[in-house]
Amino acid sequence: MRRALRGFTPGAWVALAVVVVMLVMVVAPGLIAPGDPTAIAPREAFEPPSLAHPFGTDESGRDVWTRVVHGAVSSLGVGLQATVIGVALAMVLGFAAGLGPRWLDAGIARVVEVLYALPTMVLALLLVTVRGPGLAASVLAVGLATAPGYARILRSRVRGVATSGYVAAARLDGLAPARVLTRHIAPNALWPLVAVLTLGIGQAVVWVAGLSFLGLGALPPSPEWGAMLNAGRVYLTTAWWLTVGPGLAITVTAAALTALGRAFGRVGVA
């Protein structure tokens, strides 16, 4: 780990710092924004950003900054959930393809390739149509829509590890197939996912927020960032800060997680 951190560029350190701040927002939002995210103050409605309200106030006079900070837990939470769903499905597909017989591998590879070709948003909309709009449906949709990407990486990784010398050696040593899988193949095939996952959570946050923005995910008054964007859209020309603030939070999160994921990949955590 220490060797990995030494390989970090200044940009990666900034990204790491941002992610740490995000985690504080998730665990203890009160430390960063002590106010109440639901406290309304009608007389202070639609105030532009100021020292007292860095992101301005919304239509009921709630402080947008406080809402963004307290919304981190739900936005990052759904991003994490969607990623877990996607990776879980990808693991089933990736291990089945990588370890299974040739015909299964060929079949799964073909299906994954086609699904990977479909734009994530289009695939997610198809899945939302099936379940009907809502936050749970959109998290599930984003998870499933991002699975083909993970499955591609996992499949080639599992194949590579399964045909490697040390796995052959473990088999020749007489280890049970299940033990070879859990002790040798799985850890080595899953390791590179650390970098991909870090990147993926950032992307999932953006996709889920995008669905909320389109009115298909979380609905106002939930402080989820996408829902805040959706609520602010109506006031875009009169109160731009309602959209720009939460959008900035999403963008910074995605940029930091992407940069951190790349740094992990570069320094060889992967």
Partner: peptide
Amino acid sequence: ELVASVLPHFWLGAVLIVVFAS
């Protein structure tokens, strides 16, 4: 480049509307 590549369309579009349209 990195920041540009992760910019969500909904946010970039909104910022462009605020700056260049309204």
